[in-house]
Design a protein around this nucleic acid. Sequence first.
DNA 1: ATGAAAGCGCTAACAG
DNA 2: CTGTTAGCGCTTTCAT
Lengths: 323, 323
Amino acid sequence: MVDVARHAGVSIKTVSRVINNEPNVQRQLAERVLASVAELGFRRNHLARTLRSGQSTATIGLIIEDLANPFYSTIAAVAAEVARQHETLLITASSEEDPQREQQLLRDLCSRRVDGLLIVPAGYDHAFLRPEVEMGTPVVFLDRPAGGLLADTVLLDNRGGAQAGVRALLERGHQRIGILLDSVSVYTMRERVGGAQEALASAGIAYDERLVADGVHDPEGAAAAVARMLTAPTPPTAFFSLNNRITVGVLQELWRRKSRVEVVGFDDFELSHLMPQRFTVVAYDTRQMARTAADLLFQRIAGERSWPRTVTLPTALVERGLS
Amino acid sequence: MVDVARHAGVSIKTVSRVINNEPNVQRQLAERVLASVAELGFRRNHLARTLRSGQSTATIGLIIEDLANPFYSTIAAVAAEVARQHETLLITASSEEDPQREQQLLRDLCSRRVDGLLIVPAGYDHAFLRPEVEMGTPVVFLDRPAGGLLADTVLLDNRGGAQAGVRALLERGHQRIGILLDSVSVYTMRERVGGAQEALASAGIAYDERLVADGVHDPEGAAAAVARMLTAPTPPTAFFSLNNRITVGVLQELWRRKSRVEVVGFDDFELSHLMPQRFTVVAYDTRQMARTAADLLFQRIAGERSWPRTVTLPTALVERGLS
DNA sequence: ATGAAAGCGCTAACAG
DNA sequence: CTGTTAGCGCTTTCAT
């Protein structure tokens, strides 16, 4: 900037004024400065600008589990979109479900003085963020609640969705429903299992452990679990799958066996309408969830000081697959 | 940092030394500093640290077309992964195929002094980046070549892949092959069309404009184009689709018509193995492409000064779908 | 082994 | 309208 000032024969402050489109600069000078800027290939150092306290970095941070997963990349896309509307850039990082790493990344983002944080939490304890929050960095949690920290949170109605899904199967006369889930160590899974249990209980059906497969982490695992259950003495007449990766594995295994056992799966997914059998998904609007969270965050960044809110978004049953 | 120094009763420089794990600090003092850091909730300002010239920001920038698209989110995920191995964070932004916006974002990233740039270019002219490149910001282009700028580039063998795809159909006896593409304004589409034409030409088959559908931007458009071609006087006996969104639309329309016309499509996609008919994809390794580009970028960041390279990655034909 | 002082590139506050 | 000066929070000399 000093170079530009010298080149244009003005003071550094005038350059600053021109760069920032401040009023009260003679046209003539401004043009000279702009010319020098172009000639010298000057680009303002945004970091230095930010250093003066009270300035914003025009950057927000997003922590998700896995950027390659469509659910999370949708969230990232919406976050980037909303950020852009606020002339802000987005730093995205994946925690890979590792609380340790999540904390590390969060600290790193804070040391970069991001204007705000959007978090799909992997860990259970976010108390370590309290100093940052108190120092004025807004934080919004997404898809899962925070631990040990009061903050805005946007969740899905996992419990209600699971209840509706199981109820649909019960209404179609099913009594033996196989339930497949990833891991109860994940909040959303716990909620969904809870909802399923509630629906069974209120229909007066006992929760049969043999009809529950835990630790199903991928489609292959789901296929194996389905095969196991279907060859057991009293096989289920329907499956309730607790996420879309599992649903895909279930459908694949059913197709392989030419079985037409009914399926309800939590989460919609791309191409679900082209799957080889009719089934039902518990759907929701991922973009809306992300948008709600991002909007909340920017409201906070803009100075909103109200008490932290928790928003719960609805789910809906939708028919999918080729009939 | 001044506060910490005062609290610990040492100089600011000692705090700096402790924070940076520099040697030559008494255990005792170091512990006192660490205690103060914890108590005051101090977090080093990474931006200020970076301000001293010669320091790196430990941040790279990635420009893609659309973060919500699995192809790009895979690239972003790999970029973030490689970045993490270098203790670097990733700023991701979508250009939405808008050269204007791409340029704006790139300038913005440069003003944040990123250590390097990974670009899937939307525009045709990247000469405006030359000053930055000369000032030492490495740039690697991905999936499409740069315009007006010599830089490392990682591409796919679009031409060869398309040739192989069309050749496969010709070998199965097809003479009338319907070709569906998005827009020749996109580099990859031009290359793929070129490859298809070459394969037809070397088989002595004239390129029939009526068998080519341009401007197919989504599955619905693809379905409509397929419907149109199949009800024309001399319908094609096979389709070659130039991207996976189009392929999905083609498959859906064929299923609707209970037609078993053969299909070859460029790009593999998730769940392609569960599509309702056999078909062939021109597949490639997106992760490898992204990894190659990111590795190249970090080599440059580490000081590699060799002449810019262009790497072209191979494609392979793979059978997909339920038989 | 520790500290004092200068300076990174910019903006805020105040003069002229 | 324009310029001077003092910092922002940290690291890098260079003394001690």
